Amino acid sequence: MKQLTAKEVETLLNEGKQLNIIDVREVDEIGEGKIPGAIHIPLGLVEFRLHELDKAKEYIMVCRSGGRSGRASQILESRGYKVINMAGGMLDWEGKVE
């Protein structure tokens, strides 16, 4: 599974790169802030919302610490999606939040 650090993701965003970020945390966790532009799909709903995703795009998966996003990455990879796990999750995120 491919991984990027929170700092690497922040750098890509600051460089103006168009990233497809999916935050798999629960609703109450999202209330603490998410990466601007991130799509919220709780881990438990990922399999039910596959139709919303495009296999031609690459997705960066985010959670609180990197564990749930790792599981979500495995789910998506097993179905043919291109994914990168953000290691360290939002605990390591120092960039802007919305």
Rank of each mutant, 00 (worst) to 15 (best):
L4P: 00
A6K: 09
A6E: 02
A6Y: 00
K7A: 14
E8K: 02
E8L: 02
T11Y: 07
L12H: 10
L12Q: 13
N14A: 14
N14W: 10
E15D: 11
E15N: 12
G16K: 13
G16S: 06
K17W: 07
K17L: 05
K17T: 15
K17H: 10
Q18E: 14
Q18V: 14
Q18W: 03
N20G: 04
N20C: 10
I21K: 14
D23N: 11
D23H: 07
D23M: 04
V24M: 02
R25G: 05
R25D: 03
R25L: 08
E26I: 10
E26G: 10
E26S: 13
V27N: 12
E29M: 06
E29D: 06
E29G: 07
I30Q: 01
I30V: 15
G31E: 15
G31I: 02
G31T: 08
E32P: 00
E32W: 03
I35H: 11
I35T: 09
P36M: 05
G37K: 09
G37T: 08
G37N: 15
I39G: 06
I39P: 02
H40I: 01
I41Q: 11
P42T: 00
P42C: 01
L43Q: 04
L43R: 14
L43F: 08
G44V: 05
G44H: 10
L45C: 05
L45R: 11
V46R: 12
E47P: 04
F48R: 13
R49F: 12
L50I: 15
H51V: 12
E52R: 14
L53Q: 13
L53G: 10
D54P: 13
D54Q: 05
A56P: 10
K57N: 15
K57L: 12
E58K: 14
Y59C: 09
Y59D: 13
Y59V: 08
Y59L: 11
Y59H: 06
I60G: 01
M61C: 09
V62A: 07
V62N: 06
C63L: 09
C63I: 04
R64E: 05
S65T: 15
S65N: 04
G66I: 01
G66E: 10
G67K: 12
R68Q: 11
S69I: 01
G70A: 15
G70W: 15
R71S: 02
R71L: 03
S73A: 14
S73I: 08
S73Y: 06
Q74A: 06
Q74W: 03
L76P: 05
L76E: 01
L76H: 04
E77M: 04
S78V: 00
G80E: 08
Y81M: 00
Y81F: 15
K82W: 08
K82R: 14
V83H: 02
V83R: 05
V83K: 03
V83A: 02
I84E: 02
I84L: 02
I84D: 01
N85F: 07
N85L: 04
N85V: 12
M86P: 00
A87R: 11
A87E: 05
A87W: 05
A87M: 06
G88H: 09
G88F: 08
M90V: 01
M90I: 06
W93M: 03
W93I: 09
E94Y: 09
G95I: 12
